[in-house]
Nucleic acid binder design. Structure first.
Length: 912
DNA sequence: ACCGCCGGGTGCC
DNA sequence: ACCGCCGGGTGCC
């Protein structure tokens, strides 16, 4: 019988399958096939064409089983020797279940091979017999392919059931975003208790850091069931995919630490590395103490009679140790009886200077203590030899990691940290594996790609992705590289795990090997599509999933009723500024003019279609509040454009006007400040991805969210690249002051007279205003630096370093553009913040203030907001308050609400 | 495998 | 006996 297997090869002898355990090898290739099949371009714009009841045949030849309700994967098998149209059916873990019946397979093969549709299967009723079973197929694809596919299938006698397919509701990002904000909130409750860090961690941990450490250790050590798995009788059952397995599903060892910036993710990670080695023991590290002991041994043969026997014993052990494969470090725990001698030895070193180091002996001694003193438990399914933790971070924080290791690891502990960076980096895998920590950057990763890259050969104990949201795009080289690491434990550190949409999460879960969602198809079907279609259940599942693997605390979180971190007091005061006679006259003129125009729009009901103009009017007023010279000279009206080129020119001009001032223009789709701005033919500005999303969802019927004019992707106008970041020289022939400038200078001079080392942030949305402010600062001899969005990364870090320096010569003022820099910016050297002009979005202001009011701030922080009396600014502040209220109860607000509130905002601003 | 399909055996009722 | 019917053999692609 056994030989039949070979003789008959592909033949139909059932023995073949009974003898072969292809669960492992075949499942892997099938999984790969499914993965490959679903790694097609994003299925985002897909619509459901229809359903079809099909049949899976040949069940008896395969080992894969399917439960009622379980999803299955459909993979084309063009190489099948019996039928080149074959479509294989596999379960979630990639075990083959059977084939699609051949006539249906022939029809499907055409559709699948020509990428007309993606076909998905669900087995609704359980297996009635051993030979075939029904499968519900659904066809998904681009709207324009829909009819082709339906006709195609109909011609072969398969009528797609298109009934009951409702048009998916169009959900804008912000509605999801609200849900996401919630998604990552409150992930703190009832996690584990606190855990003390190993002794080698030199910095005492704060309570919330001990909690994080405890949670992280538990995530690495405990072997409970992963999310959505439960035990049902003898089987493990996945409640989402309805898949069940005999073996306990592999648990994700790791997760996402999504604490807010400044709560000490780095320190906690360092503590984790030192505290949780194999079997929950601390990382064995060399300590100077042990080295000293050996020095002693070699330097003095007879030192103290009462210790001689121990030294002899140690030496004996050392020799014995030579023959056993010992861990080459001193474990932190040592037998109590030895502690005495270690201390004695330490004391002795004070009297016996000039010893040579002998690391070999130290290493052996260390190994001996752990291996002979404490017998290791043989619990290892895992590779206990894995030692090194690989940390990948953006270049900008690399030095921070090195500093933090320096700072937080006890002085007497020697931790091997290798910086895998630069062209002469050590590529020896043996060397890398032997390190305690290897640090590298995402850039190195994308160049050090390929299977033979040293980073991909090493068996890591742990891989940590700092600022892990960097890999959210799965198409990048580094994302692909990150998935191929061999590691036992995987962590993602990120303050902002979701930036735009659910899609951002997939890469993170794939990196963590959260099965089955590491295969894109299952993720798309179970989470992404339900969620983007606004399915409550999908969102709930996502929430559960995230909750299981994420720890997130914000600066405002509380533990046992006490704030996580206590920051110095922060006071915010508003300083009302009176305009001068001349300024007031100019302002009133502009205001009346604008008020008339907007009033007309309001009564005509055309506010939203003239939105760009309304914004321009408001901008003009806001600029007048700061400084008369801020006014943009160019202000062409969008009249009837003669030619397309002319229209384009005018649109660009509009866009330039909105952007040039550096104001915080907000996209009406995502309600964030615009990224990659584009302007529509109706002159409304959006982020390109946001408006592209709207257009792709609504297709031909797409309309501008603000004015409902028809919009097309081809008609979106971008800002010409060469003009980006171009900063026109100020027309500073004759500089003049303004009331706001005066108010600021009065404050700065007063502060300097109190303490000339007080550092201030001076913040404006208008970069040109910052330029104007430079003149009086120079005149009064203030040393200042400037940070705005136009500066290169290198320049930025340099400026920040200068400003943060405590040297007497360091600048005391930073001119800061409101939007410049990421959230990570650390400007704790400043204790005073001057906000020169109110922002539309109060969160932007908060974020800016938080750059100095954050962990590390030692002084009280004083924030001054300058607001011009009787002006648009005062009204903006009122609306800000209202917006904040709205934001707090963010859920339930619909797009129409937002539009209505926008119109009423504008009316309020103009006091109409 | 409680079906369908195939092909050989068979042939009034 | 160029059909129908019966019953055994058989069975994914």
């Amino acid at each position: 019988m056994f030989s039949n297997r070979w003789r008959f090869g592909w033949d139909r002898y059932t023995e073949v399958d009974l003898f072969t355990d292809h669960n492992d090898t075949n499942a892997e290739t099938l999984s790969q096939a499914i993965r490959a099949a679903s790694e097609e371009p994003d299925a985002d714009g897909s619509v459901l064409f229809g359903h079809l009841q099909g049949t899976v045949v040949g069940l008896r030849y395969y080992t894969g089983v399917v439960n009622s309700g379980e999803m299955v994967g459909l993979v084309r098998q063009p190489q099948n020797p019996y039928d080149r149209n074959a479509v294989m059916v596999a379960n979630i873990y990639g075990n083959q279940v059977g084939h699609i019946k051949k006539e249906l397979a022939a029809a499907m093969a055409y559709v699948m091979d020509n990428k007309l549709a993606k076909v998905e299967g669900v087995v609704h009723s359980g297996t009635k017999n051993k030979f075939t079973m029904p499968v519900m197929l659904s066809f998904w694809g681009k709207e324009e392919k829909k009819n082709t596919v339906i006709e195609m299938m109909a011609r072969r006698g398969y009528k797609l059931n298109t009934g009951g397919i409702g048009q998916a509701a169009v959900f804008f990002f912000f509605q999801l975003k609200n849900a996401f904000d919630n998604l990552f909130e409150g992930l703190m409750e009832s996690k584990d208790g606190e855990k003390e860090a190993a002794k080698s961690v030199g910095t005492p941990l704060l309570p919330h850091q001990k909690k994080a450490l405890s949670w992280m250790c538990a995530r690495e050590n405990k072997s409970g069931l992963p999310p959505f798995w439960e035990k049902r009788g003898e089987l493990y059952y996945n409640t989402l995919t309805c898949f069940s397995a005999k073996e306990i599903p592999e648990r994700v060892r790791g997760g996402i630490l999504a604490d807010d910036m400044g709560l000490g993710k780095t320190l906690t990670t360092i503590a984790l590395i030192l505290t949780n080695f194999h079997n929950g023991k601390p990382l064995p590290v060399e300590t100077c103490v042990s080295v000293t002991v050996l020095n002693l041994y070699f330097s003095i043969t007879v030192w103290c009679e009462q210790h001689l026997f121990i030294i002899k014993w140690l030496f004996a052990c050392y020799q014995e140790g030579q023959s056993s494969p010992l861990k080459a470090r001193t474990k932190k725990q040592m037998p109590p009886k030895l502690e005495g001698i270690f201390i004695s030895c330490l004391l002795f070193t004070l009297y016996a200077p000039g010893f040579q180091e002998d690391l070999d002996f130290a290493a052996a001694l260390g190994g001996l203590i752990s291996d002979t003193g404490f017998k290791k438990k043989k619990t290892s399914k895992k590779d206990l030899k894995a030692r090194a933790t690989l940390i990948i971070c953006p270049l900008s924080v690399l030095s921070n990691w090195l500093d933090q290791f320096e700072q937080h690891v006890s002085a007497n502990v020697k931790l091997n940290v290798y910086l895998y960076y630069g062209s002469d980096r050590n590529r020896s895998t043996k060397f890398l594996s032997s390190q305690d920590v290897v640090i590298t950057t995402y850039n190195i990763l994308s160049s050090d790609n390929g299977d033979k890259s040293p980073l991909h050969v090493v068996n890591w104990l742990r891989v940590v992705l700092d600022e892990g949201h960097i890999i959210r795009n799965p198409d990048t080289l580094m994302s692909k590289a990150v998935l191929r690491f061999k590691a036992q434990r995987r962590w993602i550190l990120s303050g902002t795990p979701i930036q735009n949409s659910v899609k951002d999460l997939w890469m993170l879960l794939a990196f963590l090997h959260l099965k089955p969602f590491d295969v894109r198809e299952w993720w798309n079907r179970v989470i992404q599509r339900p969620v983007t279609q606004g399915n409550k259940e999908g969102l709930q599942n996502l929430q559960t999933l995230v909750k299981c693997i994420t720890l997130r605390r914000t600066k405002n979180s509380e533990v046992n009723g006490r704030p996580l971190v206590s920051l110095p007091e922060k006071t915010v005061c508003v300083e009302k500024v009176e305009l001068s006679q001349a300024e007031r006259e100019e302002y009133e003129l502009a205001r009346n003019e604008g008020r008339n125009t907007i009033g007309r729009y309001v009564s005509e009901g055309t506010v939203l279609s003239n939105y760009a103009h309304v914004l321009a009017i408001l901008m003009r007023l806001r600029q007048l509040c700061c400084h008369p010279d801020l006014l943009a000279k160019t202000s062409t009206d969008l009249g009837a454009a003669a030619t397309p080129a002319e229209l384009r020119e005018r649109l660009i001009e509009k866009l330039r006007m909105v952007l040039a001032s550096g104001s915080d223009e907000e996209c009406s789709v995502c309600l964030e400040s615009v990224r990659l701005p584009v302007i529509t033919h109706c002159a409304h500005v959006y982020c390109r991805p946001c408006i592209a999303q709207v257009i792709s969802t609504e297709k031909e019927t797409a309309r501008c969210p603000l004015c409902r004019s028809e919009i097309k992707t081809s008609e979106l106008v971008e800002f010409p690249q060469e003009e980006m970041g171009e900063e026109n020289g100020t027309n500073s022939e004759k500089w003049r002051t303004s009331s706001k400038v005066q108010a600021l200078m009065a404050n700065l001079l007063r502060l300097r007279s109190e303490d000339n080392r007080i550092k201030c942030l001076v913040v404006s949305q208008f970069t040109r205003f910052l330029t104007i402010l430079e003149t009086p600062l120079r005149e009064h001899g203030f040393s200042y630096v400037r940070l705005d969005g136009t500066m290169s990364l290198k320049k930025r870090t340099q400026v920040i370093q200068e400003f943060q320096s405590s040297a007497d010569s360091s600048p005391v003022i930073m001119l800061l553009s409101l939007k410049a820099g990421g959230v990570g910016l650390n400007l704790t050297a400043a204790s005073h913040v001057f906000l020169m002009d109110p922002a539309w979005n109060p969160a932007t202001e908060e974020q800016c203030i938080d750059r100095c009011h954050r962990l590390g701030q030692k002084r009280k922080v004083c924030v001054t907001k300058f607001i011009v009396k009787d002006s648009v600014e005062e009204n903006m502040v009122k609306i800000q308050k209202k917006k904040q209220d709205l934001l707090e109860k963010a859920f339930g607000s619909t797009n129409t609400d937002r539009k209505a509130s926008r119109i009423s905002d504008i009316k309020a601003l103009m006091e109409l």
